[in-house]
């Protein structure tokens, strides 16, 4: 039996074939197509021609730098805030959830039972100028009549934070839940008070969760356009909105493609640096 298992067998390769085919047809081929489009010139009516026109990249970078960096900044803020909000929550569920752990997890996931757009529209209602919250506060004269949240970066950020919170909370929960609670006893036994035990044991051991949660939050948040679309105004336009407009309204495919790859490149570099800082060994070990 042992000898047989060492012999080359086509089965594992055949098993990966459907997935590999799927990714080739629907991911790798379109990626290369778009990459080629990002170096094309022309217009929608007469067609685009590949000319190696790299200026697409410099053009979009100079024209949309505000939106690009705003998106990265929003992504960072959203990641940090969701991290701060979900860490104590995930910790509490993992340690104190007891028999109800699954119930609490379900509660975190519950909003996902309604579609993304509906949830964001609900926030639009909540943050409206005369909504339950603002209208009531204004009625009590606690806020001036002209006060508004909608169309500000506060609105976009709170929508993003709300929508991406579970992507941060769940990986954190998994990492914290996996930790043996007796490690904290060991840390206090070895002269660490609660704060030191957290910093030296719990935090390092939860880093894989922090890393996974940050990626799952940061990447989609940077590219998101729904929240800026529904909750934002002219000053909160994100790069996702620009890309969408290039493709759907302006029909300028090369610039849309160039922007997409620019964003992708920035995210890849950012993630790479982030992984270096957190230490890759922690993530694989």
């Amino acid at each position: 039996m042992a000898r047989r298992s060492r012999r080359w067998s086509p089965v594992p390769y055949l098993l990966t074939l459907p997935g590999a085919l799927w990714l080739t047809v629907f991911f790798i081929v379109p990626m290369f197509t778009m990459f080629s489009v990002s170096f094309q010139e022309g217009n929608f009516e007469e067609g685009f021609v590949f000319t190696g026109y790299w200026q697409n990249y410099t053009n979009v970078l100079t024209r949309y730098d505000t939106q690009l960096f705003r998106s990265l900044a929003y992504g960072l803020i959203v990641t940090l805030v969701t991290l701060c909000l979900s860490y104590p929550m995930a910790y509490w569920i993992a340690r104190r959830g007891g028999k109800n752990k699954n119930l609490f997890l379900l509660l975190i996931l519950l909003p996902f039972f309604t579609p993304f757009i509906i949830r964001t529209l609900a926030w639009k209602q909540l943050l409206g100028d005369n909504s339950i919250i603002l209208g009531t506060l204004k009625g009590w004269n606690l806020l001036p009549e002209s006060y508004q949240v909608l169309a500000t970066s506060t609105a976009v950020l709170s929508g993003l934070i709300y929508n991406f919170l579970p992507f941060m909370a769940l990986p954190l929960y998994v990492a914290l839940e996996r930790m043996d609670p007796s490690l904290l006893d060991a840390a206090t036994d070895l002269y660490s008070n609660r704060r030191q035990a957290f910093l030296r044991v719990t935090l390092p051991l939860s880093l894989p969760g922090v890393f996974a949660g940050s990626l799952l939050t940061f990447i989609p948040a940077v590219g998101d356009f729904i929240n800026a679309d529904l909750l934002g105004g002219v000053n909160t336009v994100m790069i996702g909105n620009v890309i969408q407009r290039e493709f759907v309204t302006n029909l300028d495919y090369p610039e849309g493609a160039a922007l997409s790859f620019l964003l992708m490149g920035m995210i890849v570099i950012g993630v790479f640096l982030y992984a270096r800082v957190l230490g890759t060994e922690e993530l694989t070990g």
Binding site: D180, S182, L183, D185, A186, A187, T188, D189, L190, Y191, S192, N193, V201, P204, L205, E282, G285
Partner: peptide
């Protein structure tokens, strides 16, 4: 006195070694 101030140390049943 809290555990971290006591002059005793423990060998735990599950060892509780720090995996990181």
């Amino acid at each position: 006195l809290p555990a971290y101030k006591r002059n005793v140390n423990t060998v735990f049943q599950s060892y509780a070694l720090f995996p990181h």
